[in-house]
Design a protein around this nucleic acid. Structure first.
Lengths: 159, 159
DNA sequence: TGTGAAATTACCCAGGG
DNA sequence: CCCTGGGTAATTTCACA
């Protein structure tokens, strides 16, 4: 799949765009030490290669009524492909589930769930456990979001 | 401050922009049933009100060498303000830490950590535990990211 | 809100180092 | 693979009705 070697300039571009995608190409070019055209071409390439997957607006959860975030740890009843398939069938039905990870260790799946409040979570919880048989479910409630970023760490220092 | 009541159109705008911020105002306007200018003004207002916090590019972790995601659960040595202050002082020093939550229950803090591989994580782990005294730290390793979205659930159906 | 026009910006050609 | 410089189309931005 083409060259996956990102040089320092590519990493700088990603670093900038992961923090602020409104940056005009002209300014981006200046920051990474390039002129417009080659900079723009690199951005196109990064998008075509699927390295930049999308550009999105981030929204303050509280301001749109998302008052509660919960991490839900799930243990499967058994470790069969059937259970996993069922799990994957059920998950998309819940818009509250924003992230899903298959884990190593005791916990089989970890969900990040965004709801308005505790009663909404309870409703979600009851529906989920009705739709999906689990050996065990543990909910861990977020009291405060101390930090959150979509910008992944990327080394812009070394060549 | 100001009006925090988002009507159906505002919620539709947010819904669209949380999924794709490249959408031109003209098309966005069409989708939410408005003409350009009022739609644009609403977007401006949503930004001014801090509801839209930023616009960013999302990047495929694997393609930039982030091969391992880990959730790190931390129990404080004690529950003093001093420990929390120290915690907050230490966290920003680690670029690998992308999310930090203060939790209810046994776990005091939950971190989401992005690193290249297990040896990088081990290095991070050793440094973190050296910088921060903890009663207990438990690392839970992500095997597979099943789903991940930055788009929060928002009701676009009801008025 | 809507219409229209100006300022920015994205996009995409050349030719040359 | 970089730069300069141009040109067009698209978009944002902001007059004003």
């Amino acid at each position: 799949m083409s060259t996956l070697t990102l040089d320092r300039i590519d990493r700088k571009i990603l670093h900038e765009l992961m923090h602020d995608a409104t940056l005009p190409v002209a300014q981006l070019a200046e920051r990474v030490g390039l002129s417009q055209t080659p900079c723009w071409k690199r951005v196109q390439k990064l998008e075509a290669a699927g390295i930049i997957t999308r550009r999105v607006a981030l929204v303050d959860p509280e301001k749109i009524g998302i008052g509660l975030m919960v991490f839900v740890e799930i243990e499967a009843t058994d470790h069969s492909p059937e259970w996993r398939a069922e799990f994957r069938r059920v998950v998309p039905r819940f818009t509250e589930i924003v992230e899903v990870y298959r884990m190593a260790g005791d916990i089989d799946y970890l969900l990040k769930v965004a709801v308005s409040d505790m009663s909404a979570f309870d409703e979600f919880y009851l529906e989920l456990t009705r739709a999906l048989p689990c050996r065990n479910i543990t909910s861990k409630f977020v009291m405060e979001t101390v930090q959150t970023t979509t910008a992944l760490p990327i080394d812009v220092a070394t060549a």
